[in-house]
């Protein structure tokens, strides 16, 4: 049985589009990333899954409970961190968590222990008595995540969990999410692409309210990476260099990508799939005496995948 099964989820705000016909399944233990530009429908989808509002049509089941017919059972099964990380700023961390433990139905005898455990897990023990208002953004985020974890939910839904944090905090929160994902199902949304490749086991790309791709980050990259690209930095006569390299077998094209100072000559080389040309390029450049400084494959980034998928969407589906 899937932990989350969405069937034709659709939401319209009046006549304005929220999301259209979203169907997907998520298995226990997966960390799924919702990826899409702002306004693409990520939050709308999460708000339907958390029973904040019902879908216009379609439905979803979370741990076997229907979001339209059994909202209370669904809410008991999920922990949710909304995008803006709303908090009662005038409460100390511990009382805040106690309140939500009570709301989430943690029995009174276990409540104290559960709150202490959760604070420890999120690194909040030292701040137990601190007013939330006085906490930094990163710690507020932790309080938000702690709140989501309190009811020991099967499913965690985190809307942009790392937005607005500094790089060190981002790494900490990502590690926390990965750790949590080992025993639970996590859905997180983001518009920051490296985030999904670092944390998620699967990616769902949403654009203008529609699901346009769902796959593992690796598969998505492979799907797009039909022409492996190589970056070369060398110093030599431009025309001769391009002509020589382009003549090599398995090389499709060579382009100079930098302009300006001669010492910064970068070339981008597109090659045939599975063509092993790196050593050949290295040999030719060295033999010609063109001062080889750098030679490496260019990984396609999720940014490129994203743009590619969106362009495909607009120009019709691509066969692959």
């Amino acid at each position: 049985m899937y932990t989350i099964e969405a069937e034709h989820l659709t939401k319209f705000y009046g006549s304005a589009r929220g999301v259209v016909d979203l169907s997907f399944t998520v298995e226990r233990g997966e960390i799924v990333g919702f990826l899409g530009p702002n306004g693409s429908g990520k939050t709308t989808t999460m708000r339907m899954l958390t029973c904040f509002f019902p879908p216009t049509s379609g439905t979803a089941r979370i741990c076997g409970h229907d979001i339209v017919r059994e909202p209370l059972a669904v809410r008991r099964a999920i922990g949710y961190l909304p995008e803006s990380v709303p908090l009662y700023l005038d409460m100390p961390v511990r009382s805040y968590l106690h309140f939500f433990a009570e709301v989430k139905g943690v029995p009174s005898r276990q409540r104290r222990q559960r709150v202490e455990e959760t604070m420890q897990r999120c690194g909040l023990e030292q701040y137990a008595h601190r007013l939330i208002r006085k906490l930094s953004k990163g710690y507020r985020q932790r309080v938000g995540i702690a709140q989501a974890l309190l009811g020991d939910p099967e499913v965690l839904i985190l809307d942009e969990p790392t937005i607005g944090l500094d790089p060190r905090q981002i790494i900490e929160i990502r590690n926390l999410i990965k750790e949590l994902g080992s025993s639970r199902t996590v859905i997180l949304s983001t518009h920051i692409l490296p985030e999904v490749s670092m944390t998620c086991t699967r990616v769902m790309i949403i654009h203008e309210g529609r699901l346009i791709a769902i796959d593992t980050p690796d598969n998505l990259m492979r799907r797009i990476q039909q022409t492996p690209r190589i970056l070369l930095r060398a110093h030599g006569p431009e025309h001769e260099l391009i002509r020589t390299l382009a003549a090599l077998p398995n090389v499709r094209s060579v382009q100079r990508t930098s302009t300006g100072a001669a010492a910064l000559d970068y070339y981008q080389i597109d090659t045939e799939p599975d063509g092993q040309v790196m050593s050949e390029i290295a040999r030719v450049v060295v033999e010609a005496g063109w001062q080889l400084q750098e030679l490496r494959p260019l990984d396609i980034t999720l940014e490129q995948i994203f743009i590619q998928l969106i362009t495909d969407e607009q120009t019709g589906p691509r066969p692959c």
Binding site: R47, L72, Y80, P82, P86, Y88, V103, K104, Q147
Partner: peptide
């Protein structure tokens, strides 16, 4: 204003 209403609406509360 704080957005905390969203937490209440997505908690097991009626």
């Amino acid at each position: 204003k704080l957005g905390t209403i969203e937490l209440l609406f997505t908690s097991p509360l009626q």
